[in-house]
Amino acid sequence: MSISAAEVERVAFLARLHLTAAEKEDYARQLGAVLSYADRLRELDLSAVEPTAHATPLFNVLREDAPGESMERELALANAPERADGFFAVPRIV
């Protein structure tokens, strides 16, 4: 099984990835292979099974509403590729 070029395009955009023509071909094939392997999950009737999202069961893990230290702005911006005064700078939106 191989997934369609259109599907690869759609998924690549959702994931905000630019793919080369070669990458698109590879992923169409490789994703197809993994997904058809994953189809074995459909062999099982799991309608009565509860999904597991967490490996260990914990509930109500909460913190109190007590203010703590924020960062120095310089530190917050230290890793920013581009900044404008106290802000993170980004290109135009549209």
Partner: peptide
């Protein structure tokens, strides 16, 4: 489906 399998 994968999360259900995780339960099994």
């Amino acid at each position: 489906q994968a999360q259900k399998l995780r339960t099994l």
